[in-house]
Computed example of a mutant assay.
Amino acid sequence: MVKSKLKKRLDESPRNALVLDGAMGTLLETEGLIDSQRLWSSQPLVNNPDAIYDAHLKYLEAGADVLITSTYQANPRVFTANGFNENQANMYIAESVKLAQRARDSYASENHSKPAIIAGSIAPYGAFLSDGSEYTGEYQLSKDEFQAFHRPLLKQLNKSGVDLLALETFPRFDEIKALVELIQNEFDDQKAWVALSTMDEATICDGTSIAEVVKYLDEQPNVEFIGANCTSIFRIDGIIKHIRRYTNKPIIVYPNNGDEYDGTIGEWITQDLSADFGKFAQTWLASGANIIGGCCRSTPEDISKVAEVIHGLKVE
């Protein structure tokens, strides 16, 4: 079976481990470039695309092997719900991929390094609702409705040349199955990773056991990597160990920095806890993780600590 570029790179890596990038939205928010909750990290595609390019470069400089496109909130339905037409939506999605590719090519050329892998971000339907339900799974559509929602973004990401698909923060098992089936039936040349949104170390947010989800994903040929993202950094080790019981596929993890998101007020609550990504990366590698990065509230400095552990890189 044909492997994705990411799987090939992982197989060639000395430690069977690679570095994923960190939060895009955190950097853009810090620079005051996001004021739309609905568009979120895709907003600068409209008004400041260079900021996205610069964010990608910062993560490459920190040691990332993999970049995720800024399309988490870029489903065409999000754009059309905010006054854009379908052609504009597809143009912005394509631009997101181009920005990641341009950063990849520029960095690789200047540093004589292997080009980074580009993963096309796909968010759950709950992200479109902008009510925090990607952390609860409290929404419901039929299989056909889930597929109709995700198909346009999948089509444009595939057309734009991403190296694989990144299914991120998925809280519902029925939506995961609908999307995996869609990929296999209509985009069979694409491989994907599935990163779960979890309630705890053994359960995803809709109440389905991680065991049941992983057993299913383990049998799907288009799913190359299984893991979790956008959950507390302090929960990840247990999740890795739980996933590893049910699959030999590579595990990908990219948690938040330890702060907690309060969906009732739509804000992050800073936690007075130590969350050293470098120290955690050592533990996660020992537990069976293969690709490690960061999600919300993580920074290039966090990713540089992961790169130091995985590749021995010391980023000043």
Results as ranks from 00 to 15, higher is better:
residue 126 G to P: 00
residue 107 Y to R: 06
residue 123 A to S: 14
residue 119 A to Y: 06
residue 95 E to Y: 13
residue 130 S to M: 09
residue 95 E to K: 15
residue 156 Q to A: 11
residue 138 E to N: 12
residue 127 A to C: 02
residue 145 E to S: 14
residue 131 D to A: 03
residue 100 A to W: 03
residue 100 A to I: 12
residue 117 I to R: 00
residue 152 P to V: 07
residue 96 S to L: 04
residue 99 L to S: 04
residue 86 E to N: 14
residue 127 A to W: 02
residue 159 K to R: 15
residue 111 N to T: 09
residue 102 R to D: 07
residue 148 A to H: 12
residue 161 G to F: 13
residue 148 A to Y: 10
residue 150 H to Q: 11
residue 109 S to D: 04
residue 160 S to H: 11
residue 120 G to V: 08
residue 157 L to H: 15
residue 105 D to S: 10
residue 165 L to A: 05
residue 160 S to Q: 08
residue 135 Y to F: 09
residue 90 N to G: 09
residue 100 A to S: 14
residue 143 K to M: 03
residue 117 I to P: 04
residue 126 G to N: 07
residue 111 N to H: 09
residue 124 P to N: 04
residue 163 D to H: 08
residue 159 K to E: 15
residue 143 K to T: 12
residue 158 N to T: 13
residue 92 Y to C: 00
residue 138 E to Q: 11
residue 106 S to E: 11
residue 145 E to T: 13
residue 123 A to N: 10
residue 127 A to P: 04
residue 138 E to H: 11
residue 146 F to T: 01
residue 98 K to E: 03
residue 103 A to Q: 02
residue 93 I to M: 01
residue 88 Q to I: 10
residue 165 L to P: 04
residue 132 G to R: 09
residue 131 D to Y: 00
residue 116 A to K: 01
residue 122 I to M: 02
residue 108 A to G: 12
residue 106 S to C: 11
residue 164 L to I: 10
residue 134 E to M: 02
residue 111 N to Q: 05
residue 129 L to G: 06
residue 116 A to R: 00
residue 144 D to N: 12
residue 151 R to W: 10
residue 102 R to M: 10
residue 91 M to E: 14
residue 131 D to S: 00
residue 94 A to H: 14
residue 122 I to F: 02
residue 154 L to Q: 04
residue 122 I to K: 09
residue 137 G to E: 00
residue 86 E to V: 15
residue 138 E to M: 08
residue 143 K to V: 14
residue 155 K to I: 09
residue 97 V to G: 03
residue 164 L to P: 11
residue 88 Q to P: 10
residue 108 A to E: 03
residue 87 N to Q: 13
residue 124 P to G: 06
residue 155 K to E: 01
residue 110 E to S: 10
residue 96 S to T: 03
residue 115 P to R: 09
residue 136 T to A: 03
residue 116 A to M: 02
residue 161 G to Y: 15
residue 163 D to T: 07
residue 118 I to F: 10
residue 142 S to C: 01
residue 145 E to P: 14
residue 118 I to C: 00
residue 111 N to V: 01
residue 87 N to H: 14
residue 134 E to R: 15
residue 104 R to T: 01
residue 123 A to I: 07
residue 130 S to A: 14
residue 146 F to C: 05
